[in-house]
Amino acid sequence: MNNVMFLKKGLSRIQFFSIALLILVSSEALSSVTMIGNRIIYPSNKNAINVEFFNNDAIPYAVQTWLDDGDAESKPSTSHAPFTASPSIFKIAENAGQILRMTYNGSQVLPQDRESVFYFNFLQIPPTNIGDKDKQKSNQLLVLVKNRVKLFYRPVAIADRIANLNNEIRVTGTSGTQGSRIVIHNDSPFYVSIATVKIKQQGIQHAKSANMISPFSQESVEFKEITSLKKLTALIEYINDQGAKVSHEYTITQ
Rank of each mutant, 00 (worst) to 15 (best):
L21E: 11
I162P: 04
P60V: 10
Y119H: 07
G70E: 00
I239F: 13
Q254C: 07
K231A: 07
Y153C: 03
L144V: 04
P82T: 05
I40Q: 12
Q218G: 05
G173K: 09
Q140N: 12
F122L: 11
V149G: 00
E52G: 04
G10V: 01
S32P: 02
L7V: 01
A81H: 10
F216T: 01
T253Q: 05
Q136C: 04
V171T: 07
V51A: 14
K91V: 14
F53N: 09
S32K: 13
A195K: 11
E73W: 00
Y191I: 05
L22R: 08
I199L: 15
R148V: 01
N211P: 02
A207F: 01
Q242V: 02
I92L: 13
T172V: 07
N164Q: 14
G176I: 09
A244I: 03
P82H: 06
S74R: 00
P82C: 06
N186V: 05
I182P: 03
G97V: 09
N240R: 12
A210F: 09
Y61D: 05
D68K: 00
S74V: 00
R13P: 01
R101W: 05
S188R: 08
Y42F: 15
I162L: 14
T251H: 03
S12I: 03
Q124S: 05
L235K: 12
D57F: 11
K75L: 07
G243H: 03
S180Y: 08
N186E: 11
V51N: 12
G131C: 04
S116I: 11
G176W: 08
G243Y: 04
G70Q: 00
H80F: 12
I236S: 05
L22D: 05
G97C: 13
T227M: 09
N211M: 10
I236C: 06
T172Y: 11
K245Y: 03
Y61V: 08
I184Y: 08
Q205K: 12
